[in-house]
Design a protein around this nucleic acid. Structure first.
Length: 519
RNA sequence: GGUCCGUUCAUCUAAGGGUUAGGAUUCAAGAUUUUCAUUCUUGCCAUAGGGGUUCGAAUCCCCUACGGACUACCA
């Protein structure tokens, strides 16, 4: 065992992971899950979670995307230890601000013979690509083609110096070695092997003076002392390049461990989950709503759609990970305690909007009532309803289990805030027979005599009253409900009466008797 | 096309050679709730196919099929 391995295992090197999104738009739930798994892994091991913005492609930069990413992580309860906003010992955490760092490392690779300058323009390469395609072949910039192309391997040193001297644009490419088997253990998938003969000479440093992802991520992960790279499966094909880069830099001893997360797939059909799926099937694919700065299109978000943060996280955590037990409701603390990479699956998970709704319903029943009130008050305000917290708290307590989303609290309990505007016709047809108005009127008079206006007492008194009258309970209760709420829904009748108060309850019965035309 | 990864109920998944293949969601039926919801009970439904290895395979190996990712001076 090498000393470094010894050190790694026994000295309990501090675990450091990073979430490294590109600010090209809103974070997709796949990205949120990647962030979550990184975060859970870091916290489980008492390590650090960093946010690094990979904005090396200026052409794809989208204003507001970076802020969106941070706000989304904030909403999710994923706290960042080091990042562009938080700062930290390895600042800056935005790659565009680290531009100068990469040039030297690229040069180091050229000097050591692991990379070379290439002067072919993007247009020239496009021509070669389409020509190859026309012949049914694929053009690859690699060990067989590079000698026929324009680069510091095919040119003399003087020619290169001249081109660089006169300001020709160039890129720096990795010189992929011949006949090498690159083998690496992925913590989720086990051993993966690649033959370098199948790989190409990837661009490491672009002609605009920016590094590509490949160079920047390896350099930064090294500099930032990242111990574990946990990223999406789409990166697996570039793993051999990254491993080779660590070796070329002489950083093999501190190379991080790699784990590639399975993809999140469409609910139906083929392929990975996309924004279109959400639009078509009516569920958000983004944590927060997003307005495209160019088109002005607005995409819905979990937060705005009334999903609860903890339920959203719980649902995401189970997409690809499982605890090995039958528990499925987890707080963030429980997720942290239970999360291990060993229990992350290898196969892609189809996203299930139905299960997501189920989770939300579960959390509607579990979330602290105060929190629900906090979310619901603005919705009331938007409807122009001014009311006090105490009433809202009571209402939330009574209707929460009937709701899947926060906004449904209104559908299930609007009658606590305003008298019903109309009466459900189906229920009227079913319950409002000719003799009902008179019975309701009697009930109103009975209510007027009740002294202790409190659900349990009221129920008892009301029951004896109805029994004494010899009325049918089912008819009475349902008709009474119709008077109070306008339909056939809502919590216990006597609970409703209790909150509405004696006068209002009576008033609603009287109004109903006036307004409802017997079927 | 090439490289790599994957494949257990419709969906999320458990079972790392020996279980009637377990749980959850959805759906259906019933009980409770004099509405609805909750809760509870029950039911339907799976090891992609074919070969091995083994006393014994969802589990290990091979082939096929299917799915996916990647194949840019994007990440």
């Amino acid at each position: 065992m090498s000393f470094s391995a010894f050190k790694y295992i026994y000295m309990e090197k501090r675990i450091r992971v990073r979430f490294a999104p590109s600010p090209t738009g809103p974070l997709h739930i796949g990205g949120v899950r990647t962030a979550l798994f990184n975060y859970l892994f870091a916290r489980h091991h008492g390590g650090d979670f960093l946010l690094r913005i990979e904005d090396t492609d200026q052409t794809r930069y989208v204003p507001g995307a970076e802020e969106y990413i941070m706000e989304a992580l904030d909403w999710c309860g994923i706290t960042i230890d080091e990042g562009p906003r938080e700062g930290g010992p390895h600042a800056p955490y935005r790659q565009s601000e680290r531009k100068e760092i990469y040039a030297a490392y690229a040069q180091q690779l050229v000097d050591s013979g692991h990379a070379y300058f290439a002067f072919d323009t993007a247009d020239e390469l496009d021509v070669l690509r389409s020509a190859a395609e026309a012949k049914g072949e694929t053009f690859t910039y690699n060990n067989v083609s590079r000698n026929q192309l324009i680069n510091s391997l095919s040119l003399t040193a003087a020619e290169c110096a001249e081109r660089i001297g006169r300001g020709d644009h160039y890129v720096i490419r990795f010189k992929m070695p011949d006949h090498v088997m690159v083998e690496k253990t992925d913590l989720i998938r086990g051993n993966v092997r690649f033959n370098t003969d199948q790989l190409d000479d990837k661009v490491l440093y672009k002609s605009d003076g920016m590094p590509t992802y490949h160079l920047a991520n390896v350099v930064d992960d090294h500099l930032m002392e990242i111990t574990h790279v946990i990223r999406g499966e789409e990166w697996l094909p570039s793993l051999p390049l990254h491993v080779l880069l660590y070796k070329a830099f002489g950083w093999e001893d501190t190379m991080p461990e790699f784990s590639h997360l399975p993809l999140i797939l469409k609910p139906a059909g083929k392929g990975k989950l996309s924004k279109r799926d959400g639009d078509q099937l009516g569920f958000p694919v983004f944590p927060l709503a997003w307005k495209d700065p160019v088109t002005g299109d607005v995409s819905r978000g979990y937060r705005e759609d009334g999903y609860l943060r903890d339920g959203f996280i719980n649902m995401l955590s189970l997409l690809g990970w499982n605890p090995g037990t039958e528990q499925e409701i987890f707080s963030m603390q429980e997720l942290i305690a239970g999360f291990t990479l060993e229990r992350v699956g290898k196969s892609g998970s189809r996203f299930d909007p139905e299960k997501t709704r189920w989770f939300n319903h579960q959390y509607m029943m579990r979330t602290a009532a105060d929190e629900l009130v906090e979310m619901f008050m603005p919705l009331l305000a938007a409807r122009g309803i001014a009311t006090d917290r105490d009433l809202v708290l009571k209402v939330v307590g009574m209707v929460r289990e009937r709701c899947t989303f926060v906004q449904e609290i209104w559908d299930q309990g609007f009658f606590f805030f305003e008298a019903p505007q109309g009466y459900d016709e189906k229920i009227v047809a079913k319950r409002w027979k000719d003799d009902v108005p008179e019975m309701m009127a009697e009930i109103a008079r009975f209510f007027g005599q009740v002294v202790i206006w409190e659900p349990v007492a009221l129920k008892n008194e009301f029951s004896s009253f109805v029994n004494q009258k010899g009325w049918n309970f089912g008819t009475i209760m349902n008709s009474l409900r119709l008077c109070l709420v306008g339909g056939s829904f809502g919590p216990d009748i006597f609970e409703i009466c209790g909150v509405l108060g004696k006068e209002e309850s009576i008033r609603r019965i009287e109004v109903a008797v006036q307004k409802i035309i017997p079927a």
